[in-house]
């Protein structure tokens, strides 16, 4: 029997490495590259809006505290999930998410459509000590969020980096990042108007943690939780059993 071809490859280190790279590259290239070129991958939705600086800061806190380890933000196309959490998630809803936070584990419930389902007050109480509101909960308490002032000094840098990864923030948004963060949590302040002007009428301007002058990490996280699932209404148009998007007035 002739010598196995493999016997030759395994006599050359460089050849073997090249063969490994060749074999290992195919799968990733075939599965990833078309996601950027096939247009249907991400739906077109004209009403998709950006995270405000406060919501983005809240999102960074959500990442920092590892919330994604226990909460998904991806409602699958299964009947029980749609009935439990709302219309299934669309790709467009995480179009501006760098990184995505779809999650892989539900120790707690899915949060893709949590925005507007509970009041700000409920969220603050729940984050301060989940067992005050839900006695059986095993979620950690996040008391220190309300004690910690939000660092707004770097928000311009954050938006600038978001621009660099092609999230369409305008230079005006970058310039006003810190003021907009303050304004969104201070409804009656002179800064509030600029937020809705720049980010749209649907932006929730509210004293999230109930205390206006001091901007805390609690404000930011609640602002983020309240916008989840509400960046676009596309998912509600897409579902077989139309549901109303929550539209609370808190």
């Amino acid at each position: 029997m002739p010598e196995l071809f493999h016997r030759k490859i395994e006599r050359t280190a460089i050849g073997f490495v090249i063969a490994i790279i060749a074999a290992a590259s195919v799968g990733g290239i075939v599965e990833i590259a078309p996601l950027f070129t096939i247009h249907q991958t991400v739906e077109d939705t004209p009403d998709m809006r950006l995270y405000t600086p406060l919501e983005l800061a809240g999102r960074d806190i959500y990442i920092r505290e590892g919330c994604y380890g226990c909460h998904s933000q991806m409602i699958r196309t299964l009947r029980d999930e749609v009935e439990r959490y709302g219309p299934y998630s669309l790709a467009v809803e995480s179009k501006y998410d760098h990184p995505m936070l779809w999650g892989s584990k539900r120790t707690g419930p899915d949060l893709a459509r949590i925005g507007g389902k509970y009041s700000d007050f409920w969220h603050v109480a729940h984050l301060t000590n989940p067992r005050d509101v839900v006695p059986e909960s095993n979620m950690p308490a996040y008391r220190w969020l309300a004690r910690t002032a939000l660092d707004t000094g770097d928000l311009g840098l954050h938006l600038r980096a978001q621009q660099a990864v092609r999230v369409p923030y305008t230079d005006e948004m970058v310039a006003n990042a810190a003021a907009d963060a303050f304004g969104q949590a201070a409804p009656n302040s002179p800064f509030a108007a600029g937020v809705t002007q720049r980010y749209g009428e649907k932006t929730q301007v509210s004293a999230f943690d109930g205390v206006v002058p001091r901007l805390t990490e609690m404000d930011a996280l609640v602002a983020y939780l309240q916008v989840l699932g509400r960046l676009t209404d596309a998912a509600y148009a897409n579902t077989a059993a139309p549901q109303q998007a929550p539209n609370p007035t808190n």
Partner: peptide, 12 residues
């Protein structure tokens, strides 16, 4: 802090 270059579904 940094932001990944990959957006949403591609990032997933």
């Amino acid at each position: 802090k940094s932001y990944t270059i990959w957006p949403g579904v591609q990032d997933a």
